[in-house]
Design a protein around this nucleic acid. Structure first.
Lengths: 353, 353
DNA sequence: CTGAAAGCGCTTACAG
DNA sequence: CTGAAAGCGCTTACAG
């Protein structure tokens, strides 16, 4: 009961919770020693560490990460998600959480798709003192990037280019992707290509459209049309496609801003419009989601290397966390054309005409 | 610079961080008052609250949730996920994060699908002092439920029944679901039904199988077969189906443990085996994922009311958080049969025979 | 309703 | 390498 021995008073006050103080008492060392033993780069002899671990084990000590985060890092990484429509994001989330956990950190998942605007979402995540922030499926206004930087919290944008250039970005070159799609369709002998976009104003859609249309024009194809899907969803693809075919100038090939829209579009073409894919209409998407390689769709697409992109994003984020002076950088990942049966074979198609 | 005024010393020590101390100084009140003003049920006059908020606003104060969590609640809810194969989980995650955020809490997403076993995952989440834990796509061994309860952390299991009965559970009656599937297939005139299961030993799969087979036998149908898919994935469904049709006794109807397996199975039947759905083979799944209602699959299925289940789960969890003495309960949600075109119409099918 | 003080459980300079 | 002490930013009895 002596007031100079805090451990002696513990049980009464803390309701049986086991803290560093109890471990220190059990091991007969100081509290600082316990802390250092649990910290990989705390200076601490092997002998001490062993002694502390043994005591901790014996009395069932588990560190409180909240308390640790108060002076040290929180080990929390914020993941901002605005798009829960695109099925690709399930695998992406799986990869992100997995990669973050491998680094002994954990994921605070913030859903900014509905009630929350992006500014509120960022503010919330900052209140948890996250060590870093990953922004997916959207970009971050410059003032928010700055707000994070002011609090010393690195930000990496995943899958979207940021015009302002001041945060680190990991994405693909979607202008090139659009160009690839244009080349493939023209090479296959299609003459009236259309583009179906996703959410308005998003860099991925804009870039893909730009690359696509520019290339068509460059190769002398003027009969193109464009239609806004508005969302990354099956229904959006389906409806945009119907709209496209209600117009006077019907397309004979469609480049969709992503695979799930392309699947919706393919279903519209086959089951709503009664046309054949790829004979009457050629279809190409972007992403190579799991469904794209299903036998039902077997979709020609441009594969984004999501798994690599996730690892690169997490690597970059942790580099920034460990070195706050690192300047932001833009990392562009290469995409691959995956030709399946939703487009005519280039040789054959070209020969037909 | 007087040492009796902590705020005066602040800037030098805290690198410009704005804390309750700065707000108190700015507002000319005590730190306790600031704390109470920011706490919805802190006793605090309107006038005081207004004064504090104004000062906080002025100097850009944002509460530190980690520090708050040290004495009070963390506002963190753990979400354990073991299954990232089933596309239904993207919408489920979206709903969970959204419902949790509506309660001014946030989601710590733990991926226990790979490196991490479920015990490690639970331990980690506890280190963050989560206010509650949601366990999806798996159940929790009794000793882990107890470990959480010992730390006063309520647990709700989503979508899986727990034999041991000691945690709150929100799920569907999958025995009934199996029975519904059996009735539908028999009523439609199929004679050789098969069941394709998901991961081994999981309650959902077991219950569905049990209800299905029991009902078949009860109605005098003895020619059934069973095949293990092993995972909730398209490929698992595809391969299990091929295996089923390589056997001597080919089925003429298949009940899949979930929709994504059913889609894989349907593709196998149509594109690999060259059979017609629903004429040659009838197919029924469970979940009613987005893809089930696509024109390509148009799958008959048993809809789980995921959105309601999520809300019920979060409601139950917060009830437990606010009332620690509430006994665990089992909440069973009703499922709905959605008849589409992957099964013959009951009347017609029955008439045929 | 308000304030002064102790405390949440850990980390981190600072000495030795 | 180790220990004593101050501190992280907030909350919560305890008085008034």
């Amino acid at each position: 009961m002596s007031p100079t021995n805090p451990a002696a008073n513990r049980p009464a006050r803390t309701n049986g919770k086991v803290t560093v103080i109890e471990v220190a008492a059990e091991a007969g060392v100081s509290v600082s020693a316990v802390s250092r033993a649990f910290n990989p780069n705390g200076s601490c002899s092997d002998k001490m560490r062993k002694k502390v671990f043994k005591a901790a084990e014996k009395i069932g000590y588990k560190p409180n990460r909240l308390a640790r985060g108060l002076k040290s890092r929180s080990s929390l990484i914020g993941i901002l998600v605005t798009d829960f429509d695109n099925p690709a994001y399930l695998a992406i989330l799986s990869d992100f959480t997995s990669a973050i956990q491998k680094r002994n950190c954990h994921s605070l998942l913030i859903n900014a798709s509905q009630q929350l605007n992006i500014a509120e979402a960022v503010e919330l995540v900052m209140q948890y003192q996250v060590d870093g922030l990953i922004v997916t499926s959207t970009t971050l206004p410059q003032r928010l990037v700055e707000a994070c930087q002011k609090q010393n919290t690195p930000v990496v944008i995943f899958g979207r280019r940021s015009r302002e250039n001041l945060a680190t970005v990991v994405c693909c070159d979607n202008v090139i992707n659009g160009r690839m799609a244009a080349d493939l369709l023209l090479d296959a002998g299609y003459h009236y290509p259309a583009f179906v976009g996703g959410p308005i104003g998003v860099s991925t859609t804009t870039d893909r459209q730009r690359g696509f249309i520019n290339r068509l024009i460059q190769r002398g194809c003027d009969h193109w049309t464009v239609c806004e899907g508005g969302r990354h969803s099956y229904d959006a693809g389906f409806e945009a496609t119907c709209k496209l075919f209600r117009a006077r100038d019907r397309p004979d090939a469609i480049f969709y801003a992503d695979d799930i829209m392309a699947c919706g579009g393919m279903d519209a073409i086959r089951y709503e419009l009664g046309l054949r894919v790829p004979e009457d209409v050629g279809i190409i998407g972007v992403d190579d989601i799991r469904l794209a390689s299903s036998r039902a769709y077997n979709l020609t697409t441009i594969r984004q290397p999501f798994s690599d992109m996730v690892n690169t994003t997490v690597d970059a984020l942790f580099e920034h966390i460990h070195n706050k002076d690192l300047p932001p950088k833009h990392i562009t990942m290469p995409c691959t054309l995956i030709v399946r049966s939703s487009t005519r074979a280039p040789g054959i198609g070209a020969a037909q005409n």
